[in-house]
Amino acid sequence: MEWLDERKMDRGKKPGKLLGNKNSKNHMDLQDIIRESALPFLPAKSLRRFTGVCREWKLQISTPFFAHNQSYSFRDVSGFFCQSPSGALSFVSLNQMAYGVPDPSLKFLPEPVDIRCSSNGLLCCQGRTGYRAYYICNPVTQKWKKLPETTANHGTDPAVVLVFEPSLLNFVAEYKLVVSFASDLDGYEFEIYSSIDGSWRISAEISFGKMKLLPRTGVHVNGVVYWSSSMGRIFSFDLSCERSTIINNIGSSSLGAVNGKLHTACLLGSKLSVSELSNAYTNTMQMNSSAKQWQVKHAVTLNFSVPDLYPRSYDKETVLFLGGDVVVIRHEKKLISYNMKTKEFTEVITEEDTYSRMVPYVNSLVEI
C-alpha cells in the first residue's frame, strides 16, 4: 500500500514539472514568433529603434533577408516628402514615433533634386543640373541609383509614375519608371525605364487629344498607370499591352489604389466620398445600359468644411492621398488622416503654410 501511495504521489508531481517546462518552451516560442513574424510588419524607423532591444533582434533586423521581407510586408503610407517653392525638402510624418527618415533633405544624393513620385518605399527624384537625371533612392538606407539619360525631352514638370510592387520571389527591387510627355504630333507619348534592362524605351503608343495631363496626379493600380487631366477626365496607360484610354471622372477628385482597384476621393464642403472604378468600358456598351462606371464605396461627413477650390490644380488639391484604408486631407495648416476602416481621424500639424508638392512615402527597408 505504501508503494502504491508513493506512485500516486509521483504521478501528481510529474505533470507539474512538465507543465513548467511547457510554459518555458511557450515563452521561448513567443519570442521567436515576435522576431520572425511580427517585426517585418513594422515601419523602418521603429525597427531601427528596436535594434537596441537585444543582440538577436539587432542581427535579425540587419540581415538582407529581413529587409526584403519587411519591404514586402509593410505597405502603409507613413507620411509625405514635401518641397517648398524655394526647393527646401522636409518630411511630414503621420506618426512621429513610428515613421521617419534620417535625412529628409536628401543631402546624400550627389546634387540638389526635385521630388517626383514614390512607390512602396522607393523615392524618385530628378536632378537640377546637367541632363536632369532621375534618381531612385531609399531615404531610410540612403542608397540610390542614377538612371541613364532619357531619349525624349520630358519637360520641366514631367508626368512620372514609379511602379514598384515588392515580391517575395525577387530579392532585388525590380521597378519601372513611366513618363508621359508631350509629343511633336500634338498628343502624348510614353517613355519607360526598366530596372531589369537598365535602359529607357519609347513606346509605340501615341495618345491624341487636347486634354492636358496633371503631372503629379499619377498612380499605378494593378498594371495600369492613371493620371488626372485638366478636362476632368482620367488618362490611363496599360503597361501590359501599352495602350492608352480615356475614362470619365467624378468631378474634381484624387486617384488612388484600394484593394487592387482604382478609386477616387472627392471632398466637397464637408462631404468626403470614395468611389471605385467598377467598369472602365461603359462607353463601349449599348445605350441605356444599367452598368455604372463608378460606385460609391465610402462616404462620411467631416466636422469641418473645406472651401470649394474648383477648378483645382494639382497644387491645391484638398485630398492629398488615397490608398489602402487611408485618405489624407489638407485643411489649412494641418494634414488630416482618415482611416476608412476604423473611421478614426488623426491630425498632423505641418511646419509650412504651403508646399509646391507633397509626395506620399512608405517607411521601408527595401534594397536598391
Rank of each mutant, 00 (worst) to 15 (best):
D5V: 06
D5M: 12
L18G: 04
L18Y: 07
G20K: 13
N21L: 15
H27K: 12
D29T: 06
Q31W: 11
D32M: 10
L39P: 01
A44C: 06
S46M: 01
L59C: 10
T63F: 05
T63R: 11
F66T: 07
H68R: 03
G79L: 06
G79V: 04
F81W: 08
S86R: 08
G87Y: 04
L89T: 02
S90G: 15
P102T: 02
L106G: 01
I115T: 01
N120Y: 02
L122S: 01
K145N: 15
K145V: 13
A152W: 05
T156W: 13
F164N: 03
D184I: 05
L185W: 13
D186K: 12
D186L: 14
G187C: 04
E191W: 00
K212N: 11
G218T: 04
S229Q: 06
E242I: 09
R243H: 12
T245S: 14
I247E: 08
N249W: 03
L255H: 00
A257Y: 05
T264Q: 13
N283L: 13
T284D: 12
M287Q: 14
N288P: 06
W294C: 03
V306T: 15
P307E: 07
P311C: 02
S313E: 13
G323V: 00
K333S: 10
Y338F: 12
M340L: 09
T342N: 09
I349T: 15
T350N: 05
E352A: 13
R357Y: 01
P360D: 07
Y361L: 06
Y361D: 03
V366M: 07
